[in-house]
Nucleic acid binder design. Structure first.
Length: 485
RNA sequence: GGCCCUAUCGUCUAGUGGCCCAGGACGCUGCCCUCUCAAGGCAGAAACACGGGUUCGAGUCCCGUUAGGGCUGCCA
C-alpha cells in the first residue's frame, strides 16, 4: 500500500476561517493517526483575490492550533514549491497534453458573451451550461479568432456518461455528465483554474486522500474526469460537512468571530478551540468531551465523522475553554495569560521573578471563575491596581448601612493585628472578630470584599487578603471606611 | 430552475432492525455545598421533520414530501 499523504490547500484570500481550521484538523488527525504526511499547499491561482497577509495569517493560525505540517510553502519538501503560483509551468505542460490528445479545446467566447448565455438560459428555465460554441471550431475558424487577437481559455471536453464519486463518508455518489458542461481548465491569461491546478498538484504531490469541505463534492466529478483524461489514478475522497452559523446560514463576517485569529484575541485557548472544532462533526463514540491533541489523535476514526452540517455554538466552546483554564498546569495558564494582563495594562511587559510569583498566585485564584483569558485579565484587575470604583449595588448593600464604616475599621484593625498574615492567620483573626461582634460571617466578609476589590463577587476573601498583603488591605479598608462615613 | 448532500433535545452528538416509552455534553431550571461568584455534587424539563411502505418488530432499511446546505464562475 502506498503511503498516506493528505493536504490542506487554502487559498490566501483571507484569514484562517474556523471551517478551514476544522478541515485542516481532520486532515492533520488523519495523517497523525495513520502515520502519514500532512502537506500544506497554497492555492493562489486567482491573482486578483490574493491578499498580502493572508498566507502569514493562515500559517500562524495553524501553528497556533498546533496543527504542524510536514511539507509546506515555508518549510519546503520533496514536492516543492508548495504554492501554485510557482508551479505554473507544470500546469501548462499538463494542459498541453490534454490539448494534444484532443481532450481539451480552446474557447474564444468572451466573458460578457457567456454571461449573456447564462442569463438567457436562466430566464428560459434551462440549466445554465456552456453551449459548446467553440467545441467544434475548425483550424480555420481558430486562426481567424487568433488573428483578431482573441486569447482563448481552455475547456475540458466532457464526454457523455456518468462519474461516480466514491466518497469515504457518504458512499458512492453518481453524477450524470449531461448536468456538467465543458468547464474551463486554463483561463485566457494562461493561469489554470482550481480544478486543473488541484488535480495536477494532488497527483504530483502523491496525495492519497483528499479530505476537504463538502462544498467540493459537486466539483469532484469534474476533477475525476481530469484524472481520467490524464490517465492518473485518483486519490480517495472524503468530504466533510460544513459549519453553519447559528442562523443555519453559511458562516460570514456578520456572524461575529469566525476567524481563528479572532478567537485568539478574544482570549480563547487554542486547546479549547481545537477540541471544540473536533467535536463539531465528529464524536469519539463514547462519552468523553475533553481531549488533548494526543487523545484526539488516538480516538480519531474517520468513520465517525458526521454527514450533516453542524451549527457552531459559542457556549460550548466557552465551557471547554473554562475547563482548560482550570486544568492546565498553572505555569502554562500564566504564560498564556501574560499577554492579556500586559495588554490590559496590569503588569509590565517583562515582569521580574518576584512579580511572576504574585502573578501566578493571582491567576490561580481567578482561573476557575472565568472562561477566557480576556475575562481572566478582567477578573484580576484589582490585584494590580489600587484605583477602582465600587460596584453600586454593593455600596448600597454594604456601605450605606448604619455602622458600616465602624465595621470596616474593626475589620482593618483585625487584619492589622493578624499573625501570620496568610490565609489561615487572617481568617482566624476575622472569625474571632465575627464571634466577638456576634454577627454572621457574611456581615463582615461582604463589605470587606467590596472594600478590597470593589466587587461583590470573586475569590474567597482570605485568599484575596493574603494575596494582596497587609499593607494594601489596610489602605483599602481605610479608604472604604472613610468613604462609608 | 437543474444536479448533489443532509435531516435525533435550543446547540453538538450517541444510536448501523429488537439492549431506546432514545444515552451523553453545552445551555436552561431546581436542590445541596458555601463568605460572594465560580467550581463540584444531585435532580429535572427538553428530540427521532412529515407521510407512505418493508418487517413479527424501524430513530435505524426503501420511496415521497418538506426543510436546510452545497454546486451550477476565465473563485477556490
Amino acid at each position: 500500500m502506498s503511503s498516506i499523504r493528505v493536504r490542506f490547500a487554502p487559498s490566501p484570500t483571507g484569514s484562517l476561517h474556523i471551517g478551514g481550521a476544522r478541515t485542516a484538523l481532520f486532515n492533520w488527525l488523519f495523517a497523525r493517526k495513520y502515520g502519514g504526511s500532512f502537506v500544506l499547499r497554497l492555492e493562489d491561482t486567482d491573482l486578483d483575490r490574493n491578499l498580502a497577509d493572508a498566507e502569514k495569517h493562515i500559517l500562524e493560525g495553524l501553528a497556533w492550533l498546533g496543527l504542524d505540517w510536514d511539507e509546506g510553502p515555508d518549510k519546503g519538501g520533496p514536492h516543492a514549491p508548495y504554492k501554485q503560483s510557482g508551479r505554473l509551468d507544470l500546469y501548462r505542460e499538463e494542459a498541453g497534453r490534454l490539448l494534444g490528445m484532443g481532450l481539451a479545446y480552446p474557447c474564444y467566447c468572451q466573458p460578457d458573451e457567456l454571461a449573456r448565455d447564462r442569463k438567457l438560459a436562466q430566464a428560459e428555465g434551462r440549466p445554465p451550461l456552456y453551449c459548446g460554441r467553440c467545441r467544434d471550431l475548425d483550424e480555420k475558424a481558430r486562426s481567424e479568432k487568433e488573428a483578431r487577437g482573441l486569447k482563448p481559455a481552455l475547456r475540458l471536453l466532457v464526454p457523455p456518461g456518468q462519474t461516480v464519486v466514491d466518497d469515504l463518508i457518504r458512499g458512492p455518489v453518481v453524477f450524470l455528465h449531461e448536468t456538467i458542461d465543458d468547464f474551463i481548465i486554463v483561463k485566457s491569461n494562461g493561469v489554470p483554474t482550481y480544478h486543473l491546478a488541484c488535480v495536477v498538484d494532488d497527483h504530483h504531490m502523491r496525495i492519497s486522500h483528499v479530505i476537504r469541505a463538502e462544498e467540493h463534492l459537486s466539483n469532484t466529478p469534474k476533477q475525476l474526469m481530469l484524472y481520467r483524461a490524464l490517465s492518473w489514478e485518483p486519490p480517495a475522497f472524503m468530504h466533510v460537512s460544513m459549519i453553519l452559523a447559528p442562523d443555519r446560514a453559511k458562516l460570514s463576517k456578520r456572524h461575529g468571530a469566525t476567524g481563528v485569529e479572532e478567537f485568539r484575541t478574544q482570549g480563547f485557548l487554542s486547546e479549547a478551540l481545537l477540541n471544540y472544532l473536533a467535536l463539531l462533526g465528529w464524536s469519539p463514540g463514547d462519552e468523553r468531551e475533553v481531549f488533548s491533541r494526543e487523545e484526539l489523535v488516538a480516538a480519531f476514526t474517520p468513520g465517525s465523522i458526521t454527514k450533516h452540517a453542524a451549527v457552531y455554538d459559542l457556549q460550548k466552546l466557552t465551557w471547554l475553554c473554562a475547563q482548560y483554564l482550570r486544568t492546565l498546569p498553572l505555569d502554562e495558564v500564566v504564560e498564556r495569560a501574560l499577554p492579556f494582563l500586559t495588554g490590559a495594562g496590569l503588569v509590565p511587559a517583562d515582569p521580574g521573578p518576584e512579580e511572576m510569583v504574585y502573578i501566578s498566585r493571582v491567576v490561580d485564584l481567578v482561573r476557575t471563575r472565568v472562561h477566557t483569558l480576556v475575562e481572566l485579565a478582567g477578573a484580576a484587575d484589582y490585584f494590580f491596581r489600587d484605583e477602582f470604583s465600587y460596584e453600586e449595588k454593593g455600596v448600597r448593600k454594604y456601605f450605606q448601612k448604619p455602622g458600616a464604616a465602624e465595621l470596616l475599621r474593626q475589620g482593618r484593625e483585625a487584619l492589622a493585628a493578624a499573625q501570620p498574615f496568610d490565609v489561615a492567620g487572617t481568617e482566624e483573626a476575622y472569625r474571632k472578630l465575627i464571634a466577638e461582634l456576634n454577627i454572621s460571617g457574611g456581615a463582615l466578609i461582604h463589605p470587606t470584599r467590596l472594600a478590597l476589590t470593589g466587587r461583590t463577587m470573586g475569590p474567597g476573601l482570605f485568599d484575596i487578603v493574603a494575596a494582596l498583603g497587609r499593607e494594601r488591605c489596610l489602605a483599602r479598608l481605610g479608604r472604604a471606611a472613610q468613604g462609608a462615613e
